[in-house]
Write a protein that binds this DNA or RNA. Sequence first.
DNA 1: GCAGAAACGGAACATGGTTCCGTATCGTCT
DNA 2: AGACGATACGGAACCATGTTCCGTTTCTGC
Lengths: 202, 202
Amino acid sequence: MPYREPVNDRDPATRPSAPPRRKDARRNQETLLDAAAAVFVAKGVDAPVRDIAAEAGVGLGTIYRHFPTRADLVIAVYRHQIEACVEAGPALLAAGPTPYDALVQWIDLFVDFLVTKHGLAAVLQSGNADFEALHTYFLDRLVPVCAELLDAASTADEIDSDLTAYELMRGVGNLCIGADTDPRYDARRMVGLLVAGLRHPR
Amino acid sequence: MPYREPVNDRDPATRPSAPPRRKDARRNQETLLDAAAAVFVAKGVDAPVRDIAAEAGVGLGTIYRHFPTRADLVIAVYRHQIEACVEAGPALLAAGPTPYDALVQWIDLFVDFLVTKHGLAAVLQSGNADFEALHTYFLDRLVPVCAELLDAASTADEIDSDLTAYELMRGVGNLCIGADTDPRYDARRMVGLLVAGLRHPR
DNA sequence: GCAGAAACGGAACATGGTTCCGTATCGTCT
DNA sequence: AGACGATACGGAACCATGTTCCGTTTCTGC
């Protein structure tokens, strides 16, 4: 996975860390992201760090030099898709027929993302302190977008609830847990029900 | 798990194991359940087994003799409350004004239960294989009750959805995750939204 | 009171995240 | 090119946790 874009941001979890100066380091970082992505697909997001190191043909120390924590590795792997989601928000708002429609479509986007990543949703909400950073990153990036959509829909009087963007994101994320391993559970449908509940009853 | 009472029952997670024959064993089992309950309240359902052993003043082996697995201990601690929930279903159905009302009240009961147990909801859905038994036990006991309520409401034409009792339970359980540690997230409200979405639009 | 079954305690094992540090590699300076 | 310091690497070692094993202790029926 590409990653690296020029240094800039403040928040370490949000900022793509500056590219390593040394060529071997740069190469390893590439390799690691690719390996991690592959392992996540094959064994889920909670696959052992050692498996990722093995897949990348790299020592454990190397992983931890590049990504201080498992959560940072996960963030790095999915950063692009998250950012795509962030950018999709305003776009949908501008394009869609109504703000509420845009909100629904945006949430669908997010749910699709979550549901197609084995165990991501679970790890996102697991009280597990290891993944605090992951949780925080997702929320920091997505809540503002969600809030914008929610506000717009609210202003357009399409919505009948003072539900927080934060709560909505949490709820949606929660509903996606387990959807990837249980054919009897359809997260999209659940989220649909939840979001439908926001609509202004007319 | 206590020593094999002469074989009989099929589902080990559902059967309250027969009381141990030996007095010390009986005493220890009591002590363990109390200690576990206390530790779960203090440190959450995912507190280390060692903490529980320490609280009970007992060795690790003793815990594992009585409860083959952490999950079995958790089940034992909460069995009574689950069973109370199971019994409340038909009662509410008989008492409530309408089946849908009964369903709503029953779900409230369940949510209250989950939300007041630190980390129970999380551990319930965590893909974690360790807790498979817990997950299964909850579902085995509660899904039939939920199905009964759902059917009744459906028959009374109060509900406009072919949602499975299983899906509903999963959804509700999921929505409760993290509610105990995050003041910004109100699981009851989320569940309310979800359940409201079932109602026949009129 | 004895013998053997039943229970006990806790060391030891497996797994998984993370840290440490001696060694290897890179890039620059001369 | 050669040398040297900074950077990066590998993987053993460490810590936390669930679980297993087994030598020891405690009961209970006779």
